[in-house]
């Protein structure tokens, strides 16, 4: 008879990488649901469509790289990338936006760097930033949430399909689109503030119409991940706290030109970024101390870019910039090993 000759340990926790990815995808469900409720079926269609594109792209590149295809696709990381990207782009983006973004994310940002585990940058955010820079118009065109006064209802399923796959004259939707609250804030700082603030909470004007619900939904999904021990609390907490504190500071100094902290925390892609994007393990710092620094710096950069930068939202840029710093943070935040007086830091001298 034959038995297995293998190194200890012989038992393992049943959590697998595939399960990790799956749980993260589950975690996005509340957010996805709210987005669908508020903005119609567009996001859901993008998620499904994007996943298909991502799997196809991944398979193709794996084939070209001569790697086992099924093995890598099964880990679910490509689908997760597609889901995150689809959640970040406007629900009515034409199909080619999704295709371009995902191809870039999967092929260039992930596989060309060596595939899962070797990519220095968050692929979904690379795709997002590429789109934002290349197609600023499409990427900032959001239809208003159906909670907004005067907006009848979000597009129906067939309308969404038509919007995405382009059989509709897109100028039609231009009539009903409007800038996102963050965008509004940036463009009309001062003038429209009162208007933004006048609406009631239920109608969602803490952070712009509908957006606080989106963020709260992502927060719920994120808490699920923390509870399942898929992610630790460090990065989201550090990121949201630093963003909140910074926004609060400037709000106290000059409430007229700076938005209030709640607006920042529940506005734009803050929660999606905090729980789902910044926590992408491959590109983040791993030690607890490192995670705190990493998260806090992302929060800081988000605020800086939102307040003084050229783009309305900043999660993607902030995350990518910190991806760049993650290895350095890692080097200087090693935990102290048992039996050592000091923690090691820096790289080995050779």
């Amino acid at each position: 008879m034959s038995v297995l000759h293998v190194t200890s340990p012989h038992v393992r926790k049943p959590m697998t990488t595939n399960a990790v990815m799956r749980h993260v995808i589950y975690g996005t469900i509340p957010g996805l649901a709210v987005l669908t409720l508020l903005f119609g079926w567009g996001t859901l269609i993008n998620v499904v469509f994007g996943s298909l594109v991502a799997v196809a792209a991944e398979a193709l590149v794996l084939r070209l790289r001569n790697r086992p295809i099924l093995f890598s696709i099964k880990d679910g990381s490509a689908i997760l990338t597609a889901v995150l990207l689809a959640l970040a782009i406007p629900p009515t983006s034409p199909w080619w936006i999704t295709v371009v973004g995902i191809l870039f994310a999967i092929v260039i940002a992930k596989q060309l760097y060596g595939g899962l585990g070797s990519n220095p940058f968050n692929p979904a955010m690379i795709g997002y930033v590429l789109l934002l820079i290349s197609f600023p118009l499409e990427m900032t065109t959001w239809i208003p949430a159906n909670l907004t006064e005067g907006v009848a209802a979000s597009p129906s399923f067939s309308q969404s399909l038509a919007l995405i796959f382009g059989s509709v004259d897109r100028t039609v939707i231009d009539g009903i689109t409007m800038a996102t609250p963050l965008d509004t804030f940036k463009t009309y700082a001062g003038n429209d503030l009162d208007m933004l603030r006048s609406a009631s909470v239920l109608q969602g004007s803490i952070a712009g119409v509908g957006w606080e619900w989106v963020n709260i939904a992502f927060l719920v999904g994120g808490l699920y991940l923390v509870a399942r021990k898929i992610i630790t609390w460090h990065i989201p907490v550090a990121m949201v706290t630093s963003l909140f504190l910074l926004a609060g500071l400037f709000y106290i100094i000059d409430p007229d030109s700076y938005a209030d902290p709640i607006f920042h925390v529940l506005g734009g892609g803050t929660m999606l970024g905090a729980f789902f994007i910044a926590t992408d393990p491959v590109t983040a710092a791993t030690s607890n101390k490192g995670k705190l620094i990493y998260g806090a710096l992302i929060g800081l950069l988000i605020y800086v870019i939102r307040a003084w930068g050229g783009y309305p939202d900043a999660v993607a840029f902030a995350v990518l910039l910190l991806n760049l710093c993650a290895p350095t943070i890692e080097y200087y935040t090693q935990p102290r090993a048992y039996g050592h007086k000091k923690a090691n830091s820096g790289i080995a001298k050779s």
Partner: peptide, 14 residues
């Protein structure tokens, strides 16, 4: 044991 996969740097080990 299942097949070895790429390290996703999840930090669980740390």
């Amino acid at each position: 044991p299942a097949q070895e996969q790429a390290c996703i740097r999840c930090g669980s080990c740390a």
